[in-house]
């Protein structure tokens, strides 16, 4: 029974993340003003963390991702075996590798929404180009980081 539920959840989760991924990729493509300037980074929105402790996905509230506007994102975190992670300490940073500067704001996770979802508020991008956002995740499963690329 437990396995069945896990399997069902995992399938639902996979479908949901695929849809999210497709949506975000479309959004990123639609607003890719600076397509030629970024070195074609991996813009997947579902990523395994660096040491493969977590699988995480990001879902921006505003699509296409706007420039110069504060926005919130939903960060979803599962363990690699598909269990949603709710109790975690999460920090976010990022920036533009080609420009050598960080994010224009200090976004952070303001609350856990349940079922592995976490609300990230204060996200802002002040220019087009290649951005990197990085989440450090600490939970009972361990401490790890997951990195996403954006091409705005």
């Amino acid at each position: 029974m437990h396995l069945l539920q896990a399997s069902l959840y995992s399938r639902r989760s996979a479908v949901r993340t695929s849809v999210v991924a497709a949506g975000v990729v479309m959004a990123l493509t639609a607003c890719s003003h600076f397509g030629g300037s970024a070195p074609s980074p991996d813009i997947a929105t579902v990523k395994a963390s660096a040491h493969r402790l977590y699988r995480a996905s990001v879902r921006p509230a505003l699509v296409p991702i706007p420039v110069r506007r504060l926005q919130s994102w939903t960060l979803h975190i599962d363990t690699m075996d598909g269990r949603p992670v709710d109790a975690a300490t999460i920090t976010m940073n990022g920036g533009m590798p080609q420009h050598g500067h960080g994010l224009p704001t200090a976004p952070h996770v303001t609350r856990a929404l349940g079922n592995g979802d976490h609300l990230v508020e204060g996200v802002k991008f002040n220019m087009g180009g290649w951005w990197v956002v990085r989440f450090a995740i600490a939970s009972s499963a361990g401490t790890d980081t997951v990195t996403f690329n954006l091409s705005l």
Binding site: R68, H99, P104, N126, M127, G128, G129
Partner: peptide, 13 residues
């Protein structure tokens, strides 16, 4: 345009 973007030609940063 990296920084002078948008209709006011500033990134407000």
């Amino acid at each position: 345009v990296t920084c002078h973007n948008g209709p006011l030609l500033t990134d407000d940063h």
